[in-house]
């Protein structure tokens, strides 16, 4: 069993290499296309450009009424604020349900479980009306404020699981020494939970960066667009789209996510394996 014949092993590698090539080829092709002149993009499937042409990047960067860099700043602001909000609010919530004893704790936890099941479409319309009354539509508030209110129960669970694994004796010893729950949370639990907080932060960043629906609903002026909405701008101008420019900007919007993937690949995969995160 352990001494598998070499041919079997080769077969496995052939299948895996073949599958990964087929899967990754579109991505490589997109990157390659961003380096080709438009005339060459749809005339060949080859990856190596015959004429290296970087002009797609400058065309894309300045191709819409507003510079693409502006969208990057918007996306970055929303994503960073979301990370801060999500990590703070979800860790507070997770700390309460995992380390503190109070009446109604179980009920709260089941309610959190329940919110995981509710699709966002149900709350979408009243939320929109609410934010409209607050005059928050066309600002980043509807996208950021919910993150400060622990609206994404998935991250509460991720952190709850981790907090539960920390030894209880820490809290007990701290209470003996006269520590308040707030100091325990801030000075003991959070510093010990950096790996879990990091996982939550990275996933929050990627999810927010990739989010299309929220910005589509709430951001109407091009000035406030995120990169995802900006990319769509290339499609909207119907007729002859500048595919090279679009691919170039698509590559740029994927770059931050790719960077996280390259540097934190293990953390991400571990996060999925242990929490069952769906992406």
């Amino acid at each position: 069993m352990r001494n598998r014949p070499l041919s079997r092993s080769l077969l496995y590698h052939a299948v895996l290499c073949g599958a990964s090539l087929v899967m990754l080829y579109p991505l490589l092709w997109m990157f390659a296309s961003s380096l080709k002149p438009n005339s060459e993009i749809f005339s060949s499937v080859a990856l190596r450009p015959e004429h290296l042409d970087l002009s797609a990047y400058t065309r894309g960067w300045t191709g819409l009424q507003i510079q693409f860099g502006h969208f990057f700043v918007n996306s970055l602001v929303i994503s960073v604020l979301s990370v801060i909000g999500n990590v703070l609010s979800c860790s507070l919530t997770a700390y309460a349900v995992s380390r503190l004893v109070f009446p109604g704790r179980k009920l709260c936890f089941s309610l959190m479980l329940g919110t995981l099941m509710i699709p966002y479409q149900v709350t979408l319309i009243p939320q929109y009306i609410l934010f409209l009354h607050f005059e928050w539509v066309n600002t980043i508030m509807p996208l950021v404020v919910p993150k400060f209110l622990a609206a994404d129960a998935f991250f509460i669970f991720l952190l709850t699981q981790f907090f539960r694994g920390l030894p209880r004796e820490l809290d007990e010893a701290a209470v003996m020494d006269g520590c308040s729950p707030w100091r325990i949370y801030w000075n003991i639990i959070l510093p010990l939970s950096l790996p879990a907080l990091g996982t939550a932060a990275i996933f929050t960043f990627i999810f927010t960066w990739d989010d299309f629906f929220g910005p589509l609903v709430y951001l109407t002026d091009m000035e406030n667009f995120t990169v995802q909405l900006g990319l769509r701008g290339f499609l909207d101008s119907s007729g002859q789209s500048d595919w090279g420019a679009m691919f170039a900007m698509a590559v740029l919007t994927l770059a931050p996510v790719l960077a996280f993937f390259l540097f934190f690949q293990r953390t991400l995969i571990q996060g999925i394996a242990t929490t069952g995160m769906k992406r």
Partner: peptide
């Protein structure tokens, strides 16, 4: 006081739950 300290940590979630989930769900 310690018995109810948990709720102070839950304030953000409680606001979110009633304001962004339960309330809107009923409204819809």
């Amino acid at each position: 006081r310690a018995k109810y300290a948990g709720y102070s940590f839950l304030i953000p979630w409680l606001v979110g739950f009633f304001g962004l989930t339960l309330g809107p769900a009923l409204a819809s």
